[in-house]
Design a protein around this nucleic acid. Structure first.
Length: 570
RNA sequence: CGGGGUGUGGCUCAGUCUGGUAGAGCGCUGCGUUCGGGACGCAGAGGUCGGCGGUUCAAAUCCGCCCACCCCGACCA
């Protein structure tokens, strides 16, 4: 490709919208362009890289026997009703001219299960694993950071079908390993962690995280054992001896006018937040539950919901809080609460002499002890883990941030059962099919690479997913010798199958150098003044210095280097 | 959905408080000089100041409503 006839809309200044480095660089280097919040066009360079990422994913999926197909983006609403996922909030809803309702595909468990239930009837038809690479639509409440969280995005989604647990375990493991190869090949180091399953559901699931300060997920990592979990999911370890109320003065009511938040109460009463217990009132199904956590901790609603055996818990609204406690939000406490189940974080077990709300406007109680002043119905791990917490498998957690580039799930019968996707076993008995699903963000992975591989001048692509593997830069197109050397090398590299861009634009050399660094071609070949001596200058983007290379065998040498780099992985 | 912020030429922004001729840099067009890390000179083109309504002799500027976008929190590849 010749740059003079290509589309390289690089930006000298970063558009104001971009916060994250990778977002800014993709915009500036002309890979993507925003159309609307969370909706992006892939410009020619961006599409080339996106396709290369997709090809790696395809190759590795095929390698483990998965089979590609393509499902529609329009999904009849009735199909989602079969599994209750018509209530999912991020669904885009639409209807056709006869008022038939559709959703835009956000993931395709129902569609694939519908296909499979018609055709897989015997244990002999499995194992089966199907996948697609397709545009997904999600009405994200808050799109952000370019391709990291978009409303429309490219995703690889695979679905496995098995007749027994062992086979499901086998494909789950095979996909896990395939993911590791995929990410390594695109230049990403990933951390696998336990996670919440969200709207997908199912049992086991693992996320593949690219660890970077720019990531939006918090991950707790036990460096000693390698165990890692998303903060949404992470269990807190440690042992908690019951505290004794002995020697603690009797409960005393104190006036705390208008002091609702932990910060207000602690600074007003001059106690630290760790000496306060928050009482959070939540609705779990039909029941109202008071969840108690230390003042400086955060309730983990997922853990609480699991503990209570309900799909989700939600915070009570202000008027419901008043009904339950007799006081405004901010003054709830466990002492004297009627008809409300009290569940406390395990950490509270070893606390005594703490501060709680008085269930009365503008008042708190001090010197409170559980067991003496109120009964906790249950102690459990219900708070969000943070940096420095004990890990359940020993050792201490370190908190890091990550970009979730992949997520794999064992679904079990979550979809097959309600949708009637059953098979007949050896004995002629019917069972629901055991499923798994495996998602990988194509565009998100592309941006994650930029996030972890760039410098002040621009992107540093690995050869495996670079839009062009080599750029040939003609310093002075007026110089016949330089121009001819570049043309010859360009043709020869093309013949050898190298993705090469010839920057023959009538621009000053500085502009071309800056663009080359910004766009991040892995190898730069300069045809400049050294051509007169029979040399070109070659420089890897990831290395600081350029070296001379004789023109005579440049094409041969470069194509060998590139061939070698293509197969290189982390 | 809650909190904070921003909408002025293709991009980055000033001007808004204190109403009175719409500005700068980059980019773009033409000519000339330059030519190995985002050149210089001269001449130009380009803007319903997010939208609608109001106040006023007069609105980018004041008031009201709406919209879009960004950032921080509840969701996910």
């Amino acid at each position: 490709m010749r740059a003079s006839r290509y589309f390289l809309p690089t930006l000298r200044e970063a558009p104001a919208e971009a916060e994250l480095v990778s977002h800014r660089l993709l915009l500036r280097a002309g890979f993507i362009r925003k159309l609307s919040a969370g909706v992006y066009s892939y410009l020619p360079l961006g599409l080339r890289t996106l396709n290369k990422v997709a090809d790696i994913v395809r190759e590795e999926a095929n390698r483990i026997g998965a089979i590609e197909l393509l499902m529609p983006a329009l999904v009849p609403f009735d199909l989602l009703k079969e599994t209750g996922r018509d209530a999912v909030e991020v669904l885009y809803r639409t209807e056709d001219r006869t008022n038939r309702q559709f959703a835009l595909g956000f993931t395709h468990e129902e569609v694939i299960t519908d296909i499979v239930r018609g055709h897989v009837q015997s244990y002999r038809d499995m194992p089966l694993c199907l996948y697609q690479i397709q545009t997904k639509f999600r009405d994200e409440p808050r799109p952000r950071a370019g391709l990291i969280r978009a409303k429309e995005f490219e995703m690889f989604d695979a679905y496995s079908f098995d007749s027994n647990e062992e086979d499901l375990d086998r494909i789950y493991k095979a996909m896990w390993e395939a993911y590791e190869r995929m990410f390594r090949r695109m230049g990403l180091e990933t951390l696998v962690c336990e996670a919440e399953a969200g709207d997908i559901g199912g049992s086991d699931n693992h996320e593949f995280m690219v660890v970077t300060p720019g990531g939006e997920d918090r991950v707790l990592l036990n460096e000693k054992t390698g165990f890692a979990a998303n903060a949404e999911r992470c269990d807190v370890g440690g042992t908690y001896e019951p505290a004794s109320a002995e020697g603690v003065p009797p409960v005393e009511k104190v006036s705390t006018p208008g002091m609702r938040t932990v910060e207000e109460v602690t600074s007003f009463l001059k106690v630290s937040a760790s000496k306060l217990v928050k009482t959070l009132l939540v609705r779990a199904g039909d029941e109202t539950v008071a969840a108690l956590v230390r003042g400086d901790r955060e309730l983990n609603p997922y853990k609480l919901a699991r503990r209570l055996g309900v799909p989700k818990v939600e915070m009570l609204e202000a008027d419901a809080v008043r009904k339950a406690t007799g006081a405004d939000v901010g003054f709830a406490g466990p002492v004297g609460l009627q008809d409300v189940r009290i569940i406390a974080d395990q950490e509270v077990r070893s606390m005594a002499d703490f501060v709680v709300g008085a269930n009365e406007d503008d008042a708190h109680l001090v010197h409170v002890c559980h067991g003496r002043d109120f009964e906790v119905h249950e102690f459990a791990d219900i708070r969000i883990a943070v940096d420095g917490d004990p890990s359940p498998d020993g050792g201490v957690f370190k908190e890091v941030r990550g970009i979730e580039v992949g997520h794999i799930f064992k679904l079990g019968t979550r979809y097959s059962e309600p949708m009637g996707a059953v098979f007949t076993d050896e004995e002629g008995k019917e069972h629901p099919i055991l499923m798994g699903c495996y998602g990988l963000g194509i565009g998100r992975s592309m941006q994650a690479v930029v996030e972890v591989s760039h410098d002040d001048a621009g992107i540093i692509w690995p050869v495996s997913i670079a839009p062009f593997e080599v750029v040939i830069l003609v310093v002075n197109p007026e110089d016949r010798q330089q121009q001819e050397a570049a043309e010859t090398l360009y043709t020869e590299l093309q013949q050898r199958g190298v993705d090469v861009l010839l920057d023959d634009r009538d621009e000053r050399a500085g502009v071309k150098f800056k663009d080359a660094d910004l766009i991040g071609y892995p190898l730069r070949v300069v045809c400049g003044r050294t051509v007169a001596e029979g040399n070109v200058e070659v420089k890897w983007r990831r290395e600081p210095d350029a070296n001379p290379l004789p023109l005579s065998d440049a094409a041969q040498t470069i194509s060998e280097w590139i061939a070698h780099e293509r197969n290189r992985s982390l």
